[in-house]
Amino acid sequence: MADEEGLPDFEVPVGLFQDLEDLKAEVARLAGQVKQLTGGTGDADRGEASEGEASEGEEESAGGEAENEAGEGGGEEEEEGFPPFILLLDPPQYDDELRLLVEWVEGVLVPGYLAEPSADARWCHLWFEHPVAIARLHAVWLAWQELTDPATCGYTGPSVWHRDHLDPCLRELRPSSGPFAGCTKGEHQVDHRLPSIVPSAWSRPED
C-alpha cells in the first residue's frame, strides 16, 4: 500500500541497518588510522599542508637564490671595501686609480696644504712619476675618504686624519732628503733615488 505522500510502503530488512552501521564504524576506524599516519591532518589539511610545503619550498629556493646573489654581490663589495695597494695594480686599474688620485692631490692637497716649495719643504710638480710619492699619497687619500665621512668616523675623523696620516706623510715627502731631493722648482729628476755604483775599497783606480 502507498502512504499519504504517495511513497511505496515496504519494509526494510533489519540486517541492512546493521550492515550500514558496520560500514560507518569501519570508515571511522580507517579515518582514525589515516589521521594517525598523517600526523592528525585530514584531506583538506593535507592539501593545505602540501600547499604550505610547496610555498615554503619556493620561499626557501627564492631565498637561496637571493642569498647566492647577495653573496656574489657581497664578494664584490668586500673587494671594493678593501682597496688594494696602488703599486700592485695593473693597467687599466692602475691608470684609473692614479687619475682619481691626481684629481684629489691637485684639487685638494696642493691648494689647501702645500705652501711654496723650498729647500726644506720640497715638492715635485711631476710627483706622479715618483712611486714612493704615489704610494704615500694614495694611502693618505684613502684615509681622507674614510675619515672625512661622519658616518664612519664621527666628528674626530678630520683631526685623526691630520695627525695620523697627512702630517707624517708630508714629513716623509717634503724634506731635503726625501723622494723630491733631486727635484727643484722647474726641474725634475725621477732617477735621483736610484743607487749609484759605489766604488769598491778593494779595487785600485786605474793609472
Rank of each mutant, 00 (worst) to 15 (best):
A28P: 00
L20Q: 05
E78A: 12
A54M: 10
E60P: 00
A44K: 14
F82V: 11
R46K: 12
A28K: 15
P83G: 01
E77S: 06
R46D: 04
G40A: 03
T41V: 14
A62K: 14
A31K: 15
E78M: 13
G52A: 11
G47I: 02
A70K: 10
V34E: 01
E77R: 12
D22F: 03
P91W: 00
F82R: 12
E21N: 08
S50D: 06
G32W: 02
E77P: 00
R29N: 02
A62S: 11
L20V: 15
R46G: 06
R29M: 03
A66M: 05
Q36V: 15
V34M: 05
S50T: 14
E53V: 10
N68C: 10
G81Y: 01
D22N: 09
S50N: 08
G32R: 14
E53G: 01
A31M: 13
K35A: 08
G71H: 04
P91E: 03
A70L: 12
G52V: 08
A54F: 02
P84D: 05
E69T: 15
E77G: 12
T41R: 07
E56I: 13
F85A: 04
E58S: 06
P84M: 03
E59V: 13
E67W: 04
F85C: 06
G47Y: 02
P84K: 04
P83T: 00
A31I: 07
E67M: 11
D43C: 10
A44I: 04
A44T: 14
G39V: 07
K24I: 07
E58M: 04
A70C: 04
A28N: 07
L37W: 11
A28D: 09
G73R: 12
G64P: 01
E59A: 10
E59F: 12
P91F: 00
E78I: 08
A49R: 10
P84E: 03
F82P: 00
G39H: 04
G47M: 05
A62R: 14
R46I: 02
L20G: 07
R29V: 02
Q36S: 10
E78Y: 07
G52T: 13
A49Y: 06
G75H: 07
E69V: 15
E69L: 15
G57E: 07
E48L: 10
I86T: 03
E53T: 11
D19Y: 03
N68Q: 14
A31F: 04
A66R: 09
D45P: 01
A28Y: 01
G74W: 04
K24W: 06
S50F: 08
E48G: 06
G64Y: 02
F82M: 13
G74P: 00
G75L: 14
E48K: 12
K24S: 13
G81W: 00
G39R: 06
P92T: 02
D43R: 11
A49K: 14
E80G: 05
L37Y: 06
F85E: 05
L87P: 07
G52W: 03
E79T: 09
E60N: 10
L89T: 01
L30K: 09
D90A: 11
E56F: 08
S61F: 04
T38M: 05
D19L: 07
F82I: 12
T38R: 12
V27F: 03
E48M: 08
P91G: 05
E77F: 04
E77L: 12
